[in-house]
């Protein structure tokens, strides 16, 4: 039932070059499969330790062949050292960040400037279409401008009426008393 676990432990004990533990030994006394597994692992380990590499020597010209075959040896081995390549990356990144901040600042400064009067807008008619404010914005400014003018005119009318009443108040009171129109 626990043979899988015991076999794992057997393998590990052979790996570490020590004998099986107390519980593993007890299990192996009753389990022939695990005992066989231990023998196989132990024998293979011993054979491999004993059987060091067959000594095949390489062609002494092999390393030279590798060096000759290096792709674009002069170009590929970069002129610039690795630590400077990092700086170049940072320089490009910082230029990019500065440029994007400048563009953003330019856009915001345009957006926050006071709205031009209608006559200023009309002066800008020479500009290309994409540079002009939108149609609805122009309408909005025009309406507001005309209302302000109206109010200005109205206030000047009220002022003149008040002035008229002030100047002719005596004669008006007299006319009311006598019942003349």
């Amino acid at each position: 039932m626990f043979c899988k676990v015991y076999r794992w432990l057997i393998g590990c004990s052979v790996d570490d070059g020590r004998g099986p533990g107390r519980m593993t030994s007890a299990h192996m006394r009753n389990c022939q499969g695990c005992r066989r597994y231990y023998e196989v692992q132990f024998e293979a380990d011993r054979a491999l330790k004993k059987g060091r590499v067959p000594q095949e020597s390489a062609d002494p010209m092999g390393p030279r062949a590798v060096m000759r075959a290096l792709p674009g040896k002069d170009a590929a081995l970069r002129k610039q050292p690795a630590h400077l390549r990092g700086y170049r990356r940072w320089a490009i990144a910082s230029v990019f960040v500065i440029a994007s901040f400048s563009i953003a600042a330019l856009i915001f400064s345009r957006g926050l400037s006071p709205e031009p009067a209608p006559h200023e807008i009309t002066k800008q008619q020479d500009l290309p279409e994409f540079a002009l404010p939108s149609r609805s914005k122009i309408d909005d400014v025009m309406i507001r401008y005309s209302i302000e003018k109206e109010l200005e005119n109205l206030s000047s009318d009220i002022k003149s009426v008040a002035r008229f009443f002030a100047e002719h108040s005596d004669s008006l009171i007299l006319t009311e008393q006598t019942g003349e129109n």
């Binding site: 020597s57 390489a58 092999g62 390393p63 590798v66 060096m67 290096l70 081995l77 970069r78 050292p81």
Partner: peptide, 20 residues
């Protein structure tokens, strides 16, 4: 960093091991 001589030294050092 671009030293061909150092790479060659590595090749000399390990060529035999890898070949075997």
């Amino acid at each position: 960093c671009g030293s061909v001589a150092c790479f060659e030294e590595l090749v000399q050092r390990y060529y035999e091991d890898v070949f075997r």
